[in-house]
């Protein structure tokens, strides 16, 4: 008889489904209660929208010909005083004139439509690039600080500890304000630079501790083997310790980076139009409060889960030598 009987798992999956369903129903009932009118149809326009630009007659003349061109119409205008005819292209359903109409200068003919990127897309992009740039700088700062933390030199070690404790002991929001209003003013920094700088220093302090732990987790025998071959301390660090440490700290580093994407929403307080600030701005004009906040949350979720998948894949690739 086997030591452990294998139990069927499907009832638990059924329970999970039931709980999730109950949550969804609860949410629906709750929104009914507050008498909120959902207007999801308002959301897509904040990703992409069609911009209409009114087109008018460049000079007085006659609309001599209107030719359809896909969804557009090309209106040919012959000037009243002779000379070269001009062509204006407008969307057919906005056309306000007929062929043969005579036009004064500035008369509206119709409108041109162009796809434009909406504020949510732009905010999402700002969030992504701010996170990546500050994450990258933070990684370098963290690596240097982590190495200083392990240095035999008391000055370097002390500085590293001071920096790490300073950052870890104060709220990010306060750091962003100080960075923007104080350091930013003293050094005359742009708000973007201040925001990226604050985030990079923040993530750098946490990364430093992760990297320090990673380096210390590599067995002493590795360093001894490398040094016994005549490799310098730097060569040993670069070729032997750091590659192994990096592989080991990838999961906590990934967690830190995912946190950073979420924490980057705090830069909206210094008027950087990231995803969060875009959401807030849209709400003031659309009043679709619930829809926009849910959308913003889903966008953060999409970015962070995409990143965790990517890092999971990277982790498996590194596991080849195990």
């Amino acid at each position: 008889m086997p030591l452990k009987r294998r139990e069927a798992e499907w009832p638990w999956y059924a329970l999970l489904g039931l709980i999730l369903l109950a949550l969804a129903v609860g949410l629906w009932v709750a929104t009914k209660r507050v008498n909120y009118e959902w207007r999801w149809e308002r959301v897509p326009q904040y990703f992409f929208y069609q911009d209409e630009q009114a087109q008018s007659a460049p000079f007085a003349g006659l609309a001599s010909q209107i030719r359809p061109d896909g969804a557009d119409s090309r209106v040919e205008i012959t000037p009243a005083d002779g000379g070269q005819p001009a062509t204006v292209s407008v969307a057919t359903d906005t056309l306000k004139i007929k062929a043969g109409d005579s036009l004064a200068e500035g008369d509206e003919i119709g409108a041109q439509r162009h796809w434009k990127i909406g504020p949510l897309t732009r905010g999402l992009w700002v969030t992504i690039w701010i996170s990546f740039v500050s994450g990258f700088i933070g990684l370098i700062v963290g690596l240097i600080t982590g190495l200083c933390r392990l240095s035999p030199n008391p000055a370097l070690r002390g500085l590293a500890v001071f920096y790490i404790e300073l950052i870890r002991g104060t709220p990010l929001l306060v750091q962003i304000f100080i960075f923007y209003f104080f350091i930013g003013t003293v050094l005359n920094l742009d708000r973007i630079v201040a925001g990226v700088g604050a985030l990079a220093l923040f993530v750098g302090a946490y990364t430093a501790e992760i990297i320090r732990a990673g380096i210390q987790s590599i067995a002493k025998g590795q360093t001894e083997a490398a040094r016994s071959l005549g490799m310098t301390a730097t060569d040993t660090m670069v070729h032997i310790v750091l590659p192994q440490a990096f592989k080991r700290v990838l999961p906590p580093l990934a967690g830190q980076f995912i946190s950073l994407i979420k924490d980057s929403s705090l830069v909206s307080v210094i008027a950087i139009t990231d995803l969060t600030k875009s959401g807030r701005e849209i709400i003031t004009s659309s009043f679709a409060t619930f829809e926009i906040w849910f959308t913003v949350a889903l966008l953060y979720l999409a970015v962070t889960s995409l990143l965790s998948q990517l890092l999971f894949w990277l982790e498996r690739r590194f596991a080849r030598s195990d």
Partner: peptide, 22 residues
């Protein structure tokens, strides 16, 4: 010391091969 160590090979009890390298 690094110049001396090149000339002195060492073999350890626990091998200490570099696990991330072939």
């Amino acid at each position: 010391i690094n110049t001396v160590r090149r000339e002195v090979g060492m073999v350890f009890q626990h091998f200490n091969l570099f696990p991330h390298k072939t």
